[in-house]
Computed example of a mutant assay.
Amino acid sequence: MENPILKDPRELFHTEKFEKQDQDTPALQAKMNPKPDCGEKSYVGNKKLENRRVLITGGDSGIGRAAAIAFAKEGADVAIQFYPGEEKDANEVAECIQEAGRKACLLPYDLREESTPKQIIEQAVADLGGLDTLVLNAAQQISKKSIEELSIQQIRDTFTINIIAMFELVQLALPNLPAGSSIITTTSVQAFDPSDHLLDYAATKAAIANFTIGLAKQLASKGIRVNGVAPGPIWTPLQLDHGQPQGALPDFGQESLLGRAGQPVELAPVYVFLASNDASYVTAQIYGVTGGEAINL
Rank of each mutant, 00 (worst) to 15 (best):
E92R: 05
I80S: 08
G243W: 05
I63A: 06
V265D: 01
L172R: 14
G85Y: 02
V289H: 01
H14G: 04
M1C: 14
I208E: 03
E87N: 11
G130D: 03
L174I: 12
K35A: 15
L131W: 05
G292K: 03
K20A: 14
G259H: 05
E122Y: 01
I155K: 01
Q29I: 09
I63Y: 01
L55K: 03
A124P: 00
D278H: 13
A220M: 11
R102Y: 07
L257W: 04
S151H: 07
G291K: 04
T283V: 09
A104S: 11
I295F: 09
N296Y: 13
L136T: 00
E113W: 02
D278Q: 15
D89Q: 02
G247M: 07
K41A: 15
A268D: 08
I234F: 07
K118W: 05
T133A: 13
S195Y: 14
V282E: 03
H197N: 12
L6E: 10
R10F: 12
I224K: 06
R53C: 06
P36I: 10
E16L: 08
P194R: 13
T15E: 04
L219Q: 04
P269S: 14
L177W: 03
D77W: 04
N137K: 05
Q263N: 05
L257T: 03
G292H: 02
E95Q: 13
P4E: 09
E2W: 12
P4N: 09
I224T: 08
Q263W: 05
L172S: 02
Q141D: 03
K222Y: 10
P26L: 12
Y109N: 06
Q244S: 10
T133V: 15
A72L: 07
A203R: 07
F192A: 10
G180H: 07
S188C: 09
S256V: 06
T133Y: 06
M1Q: 08
F167T: 08
Q154L: 15
Q119R: 14
F211N: 00
P233A: 09
L249F: 10
S181I: 09
I184Y: 03
C96P: 00
R260S: 06
C96K: 10
I161Q: 00
P108M: 12
I161E: 00
A284P: 02
T187L: 12
A94D: 00
A203L: 12
T160C: 11
V272F: 09
K17G: 06
I152Q: 08
N51A: 14
L169Y: 02
L169A: 06
G262F: 03
G62W: 10
S280Q: 01
L199G: 05
K31E: 13
S181D: 02
G39K: 06
I224L: 13
N91F: 11
I163N: 01
